[in-house]
Amino acid sequence: MNSMNLPPDKARLLRQYDGEKKWELICDQERFQVKNPPHTYLQKLRSYLDPAVTRKKFRRRVQESTQVLRELEISLRTNHIGWVREFLNEENKGLDVLVEYLSFAQYAVTYDGDCVENNTEAMMDKSKTWSRSIEDLHRGGTLPAHITGNGITRAGRHSTLRCSTLPIRRTLKNSRLVCKKDDVHVCIMCLRAIMNYQYGFNMVMSHPHAVNEIALSLNNKNPRTKALVLELLAAVCLVRGGHEIILSAFDNFKEVCMESQRFEKLMEYFKNEDNNIDFMTE
């Protein structure tokens, strides 16, 4: 029961079952769990993020990315809490990898659309940020955290940029291949599964880029993705210091997407998606 991370009411209900029913639940739990260890998924995600990979090799690798992410989401949602902790631990750095893949998957959506139009300087800033994070990932070091008592500061995203030789054109081309798939949506689902655990929720809250990247996923054209993003952002608002974190994320959104006012694009989405009940109610 501890490994299933059940809420108190569900745990009380389960204790009332007879031995035969409990054994059936244990067998069901074993049957439906994905057996792969965390490093199996992380190794594949890291291979998609390798900036040195050739275009041809990238096309071949990324064909299975959505399925890999779907299996990862199932594992994060159904496996015991020990599996999730192993995914998130200092050795695997699963949250870092997932956030970096989300950033890469929506790179073309954010910087190749009407967000920045022909603003080359803004694209260069994003390319530096993305490649700097990939360098950190490949070195195995931790991402620099800039945390205040109430949450993530804006400096957490922009303060330690380093110049990179990563070609913007290659990054955009590779990201365009990914953004045509459901990878952004499934990445957000993975983050939701992590945030269902208090341990994972706290890690997302204190991560220097996670909430920013979740907010930037509002640029995705899929209304279901927008609704899911708002669900996660609303959950952050409910905890102490959450409002400051969300405002910081939308400050970042305003800067990245060249808004004249904060929440400008969000209000546009509400107007344009007025027929989508899920999105409007979130």
Rank of each mutant, 00 (worst) to 15 (best):
Q16R: 12
A11C: 06
D28L: 08
R15W: 01
S3M: 12
R46N: 05
L14Q: 03
S47A: 12
K22G: 07
Y48Q: 01
Y41N: 00
N36I: 00
P8E: 15
T40E: 06
D9G: 09
Y17T: 14
L13I: 06
K22N: 07
G19K: 04
K10E: 15
K44H: 11
A11K: 09
Q16P: 02
V34F: 00
R12V: 05
K35A: 07
Q16D: 08
Q43C: 10
K10Q: 15
K21C: 08
L49A: 05
H39I: 10
C27H: 04
R46A: 05
I26L: 15
K35H: 04
K22V: 13
K35N: 02
F32D: 01
Q29A: 14
Y17G: 09
R31D: 01
V34L: 02
Q43E: 11
Y41W: 01
G19S: 04
N5T: 04
L49D: 03
L25W: 12
Y41E: 00
M4Q: 12
R12C: 05
L6C: 13
L6Q: 11
Y17H: 13
F32R: 01
S47L: 10
K21Q: 15
D18I: 09
L25H: 12
L49T: 06
D18P: 08
P7I: 14
N2C: 09
D18F: 08
W23G: 01
D18W: 08
P8W: 13
C27F: 06
K44S: 07
Q29H: 15
H39G: 02
W23D: 04
W23H: 07
D9M: 14
S3K: 10
H39T: 05
Y41F: 07
P38L: 02
L13D: 11
D28K: 11
G19C: 00
